[in-house]
Amino acid sequence: MYRKTFARIHLGNLKQNIRNAAGNVPDACGIVAVVKANAYGHGAVECARAAKQAGACMLAVALAEEAVPLIQENIGLPIIIIGRSNHEQLRLAVELGLQPCVFTPDDIAFLQEASAEQGTKTKVHLKFDTGMCRIGIRSDQELGECIKTLNACDRVGLEGVFTHFANSDAKNKDHAIGQHEKFLHYIDILRENGFRPAIHADNSAGTIDLPQFSHDMVRFGISMYGYYPSDEVDKDAVPLSPVMEVFAEISHVKTIEPGESVGYGSTFTAQRTTKVATVQIGYGDGYNRLLSNKGKMIVTTDCGSFYAPIIGRVCMDQTMIDITDVGGAVQTGDVVTVLGKKGDKLVSADDIAKICGTISYEVLLDFNERVPRVYSDDNGADPAGKEQK
């Protein structure tokens, strides 16, 4: 790692988040660790390995190809694909021994053919659309056609059934309750036809607020990484600690006089003698340009930790901050906290999301490959962490 701009991933926090979630659901309920989109930007292989150590029973990805590195690294947990797969992806799922989501007779029949070609059997999870209006079975007739096809396909086994709540993170749970009632109706039909699949409905919000709907497994996504799906869930039910922190190096410190402007477009003009630090991070690293003249970083000196507001526009590779009110010496080579906590100061993904008009999920995912991930188990054994290869 050359530039001192990096993300530290606290795997110990991830493990504890999983254990706290497990404590909020029945003992027999398994935790499915959702590691799609490179584990929400945290690193799929490392997070999957940590999740397994914390007791997760299964991994979830959105795309069959996302499972390739997990298989190559021998994580050793079954993997479900929770998004729709085209035929090329279904063929890959068969090759890798994944458990794809299906909801049409055509996909089931294709899996039968692909499994026969490879001399294997494939486990699938039926997806039900109970109110998300995204993907899934929407009627008794559609389910009946899938059941007929499953009965005709000896190489495709129904391993699980699931739905996804659209509003389980809202204070009013009526929509989620209605979705669950529809889901139970479809499960009854399956049981009448002799199927006994594993059942899962809860996402992170459901795991926290609707543990009574946990069934056999819950899919733990954003909250595994330390963030609540919304401010309306019961945060006392499952304590969470953020897993990612982001740091960046100061490349230059200077003083400007009243009337001088900063950055592209001269959107900030100094009203006083102002001490400015240039920080080695920008929108080319996934640091949102909407933070221009609105966001803040944390600068830590021997006098403590201080907020330093962003001044001027966030550039592709650099961002300027006002360090006039920072106590103590600040110099080139110092590292500031872009995301995380230092002393009594905190910049969270939720804080950044509010400024940018988005959600914590996107903030975490935005930090790209130019920001190396450094891993720590938070157990003191490897305080420097391990740099991703």
Rank of each mutant, 00 (worst) to 15 (best):
G55C: 08
D27A: 14
V34M: 10
N74S: 13
G76T: 07
G55N: 11
G43I: 01
G12R: 11
A28Q: 14
V61W: 04
I18S: 08
K36V: 00
I79L: 03
E65I: 04
K15W: 02
G41I: 02
Y40A: 03
A39C: 06
I80A: 10
A64Y: 05
K15I: 00
I71D: 04
E73A: 11
A64N: 11
I18M: 13
I71L: 08
G55M: 09
A56S: 14
G12H: 09
R49F: 01
H42D: 05
N74K: 15
G43A: 11
A37L: 06
I9R: 12
H87A: 05
P78T: 05
L11Y: 08
G41F: 01
V68D: 06
R8C: 01
A54N: 14
V25H: 13
N74F: 01
I79G: 00
P26K: 13
A33H: 05
H42R: 09
H87N: 12
G55Y: 07
A48T: 06
A37H: 11
R3E: 14
R84M: 09
P78R: 12
N24C: 12
Y40H: 15
A54T: 09
P69S: 12
L63A: 13
E46I: 00
I80K: 05
G55S: 11
V61R: 10
K52M: 09
